[in-house]
């Protein structure tokens, strides 16, 4: 895997501590990192706080070798921050629970007045929340961030075959959960 322009920018930042260079990287990536963090931590305030932690780590980086894509490196930093947070016992219960009856946010998959669509969107969020963090992350990194299996393997510190397996199991679980919703709706 080759380094990219952002990796070169990061190397420049580490060498010069030029905050303007850092800001360019932040502007380019903070949304995708926030989305990634949200896969582990669903509470918006907590997700923002952890995303800040990720960028603080980036800011404090003293040594950086641009061997891989910057995005892959950054996702890996974010994954480590999230997993460290989830390992804290007092946090574990708080984060992975999605509230029953919570409405999907924004202009999601549910058109106004489409009760079945709303129900499906809600169940999708719940089904995603039920997945183990690495399954959820592998699946969504592939689907939403279009990372390759190799990049996901680097991000999650695992093998490509393990990534394929994580994605497959995530998809099976989602399909199973959502087909149950349809069956319930049909009965």
């Amino acid at each position: 895997m080759e380094a990219d322009d952002d990796a070169a920018l990061m190397a420049t930042f580490v060498a010069t501590r030029d905050r303007r260079v850092y800001t360019v990287l932040f502007d380019r990536h903070h949304r995708s990192i926030l989305r990634h963090v949200q896969r582990y931590v669903r509470e918006p305030g907590q997700a923002e706080e952890l995303t800040q932690d990720v960028f603080v780590r980036v800011y404090r980086t003293k040594q950086y070798e641009p061997k891989t894509k910057f995005k892959t490196w950054l996702f890996r930093v974010a994954t480590n921050v999230c997993l460290n947070e989830l390992r804290r016992p007092e946090r574990r219960e708080k984060f992975d629970v999605i509230e029953e009856g919570r409405e999907p946010k924004g202009d999601g998959p549910s058109p106004e007045g489409n009760v079945a669509g709303k129900e499906l969107a809600l169940r999708l969020e719940q089904a995603l929340a039920k997945l183990p963090p690495n399954q959820r992350a592998a699946f969504l990194l592939a689907r939403q961030d279009q990372l390759s299996h190799e990049e996901i393997a680097q991000t999650l510190d695992t093998t490509v075959s393990a990534v394929k397996s994580l994605i497959h199991r995530a998809l099976e679980a989602l399909r199973r959960d959502l087909s149950e919703v349809q069956m319930e709706a049909g009965s």
């Binding site: 932040f26 903070h30 989305r35 949200q38 923002e48 924004g106 998959p109 939403q144």
Partner: peptide
């Protein structure tokens, strides 16, 4: 399922996010 996932809303950073960082 894939079509639904593509339409998943994502969290937008709050206005205070960049300032807090």
């Amino acid at each position: 399922v894939l079509a639904m996932v593509e339409k998943l809303p994502s969290l937008e950073p709050s206005p205070a996010f960049a300032r807090a960082l």
